[in-house]
């Protein structure tokens, strides 16, 4: 298989195109690999640095001066501030839901009113995170296809 890498202008959207005779398991594997690399963040755990695929992230939380990336079973620390994550993830399926949390919208199972006057979202792993009222209009806009 011949591999060609072509440089394109900054105004164009980056893309990967595969020319093949038949879409077989080998091609599917390449596609899966590319998808898995499509969004990567880095975090540390036990002084080791790890790459974290965006689809695996449940939410990112800032606690005091530290930022933590939560996955279903793991938690990684990051040196980045929450607002930096907000910028990096602005075009992705992530949304700021409170002063201290950015959530992966693809990992939310449902949203319900919380008895403390706010909303909470139930994540697919059963965890609940609070949505502040302040962020509700922006979240609704994003869910309806707005670019927030």
């Amino acid at each position: 298989m011949e591999i060609t890498v072509k440089k394109i202008g900054a105004e164009q959207k980056e893309y990967i195109e595969i020319g093949c005779h038949k879409k077989d398991e080998r091609i599917n594997e390449i596609v899966r690999f590319i998808r898995s690399r499509r969004g990567i963040l880095t975090g540390t755990k036990d002084n080791r640095r790890y790459s974290i695929a965006l689809p695996d992230i449940l939410y990112i939380e800032a606690v005091d001066e530290k930022t933590f990336i939560y996955l279903e079973k793991d938690c990684y620390e990051s040196g980045r501030r929450l607002y930096e994550f907000e910028e990096v993830l602005s075009g992705r399926s992530f949304a700021r839901i409170s002063k201290s949390v950015i959530v992966n919208l693809m990992k939310i199972d449902s949203i319900r009113p919380s008895l403390n006057g706010r909303f909470s979202c139930l994540l697919r792993n059963g965890e609940q995170v609070i949505i502040s009222r302040k962020y509700v209009p922006d979240i609704r806009e994003k869910l309806r296809g707005g670019a927030i």
Binding site: S93, L105, M106, I108, S110, I111, R112, P113, L115, G117, F119, V136, I139, R140, K142, L143, R144, G145
Partner: peptide, 25 residues
């Protein structure tokens, strides 16, 4: 009454969320 209004908002948001997730998928 406030909670009922919030419930309506939450149901609508969950519906929008499901559509959003389907679209992205």
């Amino acid at each position: 009454i406030g909670w009922v209004f919030d419930m309506k908002t939450a149901v609508k948001m969950t519906e929008d969320l499901k559509k959003y997730q389907e679209k992205i998928t």
